[in-house]
């Protein structure tokens, strides 16, 4: 009985909302607001395997490459800057300034600099996503526990072992926070760089549907973008849970004591 009510609580509202959309839009005459059933028809018709290979995978590939480079770069630079106080003082205002730019303005500049190829889009994603990772890594490296640092010194833990087991691990909750902030930015930049400068990709395709007044197809593209956003955030959460298990456990423990 309790299980039933829990399940109802979990999926009740989404089901009601979808049903409202389905039945509310059924037989819609509005050209711009087609019925959900025709959107679903268009979805199945449009997003075939070929379409995925030609339009969706290139987008996701650029997203992945840009995101991974941004995180790696952010962690490396952040570790360096966070470790040396004078480097931090020297660069902090510059970083604050660079971070303040709304990342989408990079798209026109990047188009000017390197055309409309893959390189431009990856560049835009890297440049837009590196800041949250970088700044959070700096915070994380700075905020590591002094007793733990002393422990490493006393027990002769140095070099790469120290980097791996102290510096990066201690900063990993902040690194993950930065990476979490960077993920939606990466999606935004992927989509709008394709809307502004591309001849393939998801953003480009969806905008083409809009320009060609293929309205149900366009709606299905919007749905697909939404699903991609949801799936990526779920994947991220899985990765975070396995990487930061110790952190959440420790926090939960502290609350108990």
């Amino acid at each position: 009985m309790r299980l039933v009510s829990r399940v109802l609580l979990l999926i009740g509202l989404p089901v009601v909302l979808l049903a409202t959309w389905w039945f509310g839009s059924a037989g819609s005459e509005d050209f711009y607001r087609p019925s959900l059933s025709s959107i679903m028809d268009a979805f199945v018709r449009t997003w075939t395997w070929d379409m995925f290979v030609q339009q969706v995978f290139p987008s996701l590939w650029r997203l992945l490459v840009g995101y991974v480079i941004a995180v790696a770069l952010g962690v490396a630079l952040g570790g360096l800057i966070g470790t040396y106080r004078s480097v931090r003082s020297l660069l902090e205002p510059v970083l604050e300034f660079l971070r303040a730019f709304p990342p989408p303005v990079l798209v026109p500049a990047a188009i000017l600099l390197s055309g409309i190829g893959d390189r431009t889009k990856i560049l835009v994603i890297v440049f837009g996503c590196v800041w949250p990772v970088l700044l959070n890594t700096i915070e994380g490296v700075r905020g590591r526990d002094e007793v733990l640092s002393d422990t490493c010194r006393s027990y002769g833990i140095t070099g790469t072992l120290r980097l791996r087991h102290l510096v990066l691990r201690a900063a990993s909750p902040q690194i993950m926070t930065g990476a979490r902030q960077a993920l939606p930015l990466a999606i935004i930049l992927m989509v709008i760089s394709e809307m502004m400068a591309a001849n393939d990709g998801l953003g480009f395709t969806v905008l083409q549907f809009q320009r060609g007044f293929q309205i149900p197809e366009m709606w299905s593209g919007v749905l697909l973008l939404g699903v991609i956003g949801i799936v990526l955030s779920l994947l991220f959460r899985l990765a975070e849970r396995s990487l930061l298990g110790w952190y959440h456990g420790q926090r939960a423990g502290q609350r108990e004591w």
Binding site: L9, L13, I192, V206, L207, V222, G226
Partner: peptide
């Protein structure tokens, strides 16, 4: 409790997906 799932699903939908709409 009733809105939790809905919010979890709506939140990660990228705002730029709404652009064509």
């Amino acid at each position: 409790a009733a809105t939790a799932t809905t919010i979890e699903f709506l939140r990660p939908i990228p705002s730029v997906a709404l652009i064509p709409l």
